[in-house]
C-alpha cells in the first residue's frame, strides 16, 4: 500500500491504495469521479484521458502512486459551475457525440490539443491529433467539427481578453 496525494480539479485529495492501482481506478473508485472512462484497457482508445501536470495522458496506463504529487484535471474539472467549457459547448452544439462513452477522453484530448496549437488548427491536424482517441459511433466528422469550432471560440475569447487587458 502507498499513500497517494494529488490535486484533482483544484482540490487536494489523498488516499491509501495498492501500488498496482491505476490512476483511472483511483479517480473513479476512490474519488467517485466516474466521468473518466475505461474503454479498451489496452492504452488504445483514449476514453481515460486526463491531464496530469497540464499534459494529456492515458490514466489507464499510469499508476496512481506514479502520479502522486501531481495536479490532475478530469472532465469534471472543466466546466465553470453551470457554464460549459468552450470545448464541451462545441461538442453539444455540433453533435460531437452519440453514445457519449468516448466523449470525456475526446474533450480532454481536444483541450490539450488546442493548448498545444496556439497558432490554430486545421482539419488534417485535428484528425492526426485524434490518433489516440477512438469513437465507435459517429465516424469522427462531428467531433472534428466541434474541436475546430472550439479552437476558434477560444482563440477569439483570448483575443478579447488581451484587448481588454490592453
Amino acid at each position: 500500500m502507498s499513500d497517494v496525494s494529488l490535486v484533482v480539479n483544484g482540490r487536494k485529495v489523498s488516499g491509501s491504495v495498492e501500488d498496482r492501482t491505476l490512476l483511472v481506478h483511483f479517480l473513479r473508485e476512490n474519488l467517485g469521479l466516474t466521468g473518466t472512462h475505461v474503454g479498451c484497457d489496452t492504452s488504445q482508445c483514449g476514453a481515460c484521458v486526463v491531464h496530469v501536470d497540464g499534459k494529456a495522458v492515458k490514466s489507464c496506463t499510469m499508476l496512481a502512486v506514479q502520479a502522486s504529487g501531481s495536479e490532475v484535471v478530469t472532465i469534471e474539472g472543466l466546466a465553470n459551475g453551470a457554464e460549459l467549457h468552450p470545448v464541451q459547448a462545441a461538442f453539444k452544439e455540433h453533435h460531437g457525440l452519440q453514445c457519449g462513452f468516448c466523449t470525456p477522453g475526446m474533450i480532454m484530448a481536444a483541450t490539450d490539443m488546442i493548448r498545444r496549437h496556439p497558432e490554430g488548427l486545421d482539419e488534417a491536424t485535428v484528425r492526426a491529433e485524434l490518433e489516440g482517441n477512438i469513437c465507435r459511433c459517429t465516424g469522427y466528422h462531428n467531433i472534428v467539427k466541434a474541436v475546430l469550432a472550439a479552437s476558434k471560440t477560444m482563440a477569439k475569447s483570448k483575443g478579447k481578453a488581451k484587448a481588454k487587458a490592453a
Binding site: S43, V49, A56, V57, K58, G132
Partner: peptide, 9 residues
C-alpha cells in the same frame, strides 16, 4: 510514435 497522450509519457 504512438499518439499524443503516449508521447507525453
Amino acid at each position: 510514435i504512438g499518439d499524443p497522450h503516449v508521447r507525453h509519457k
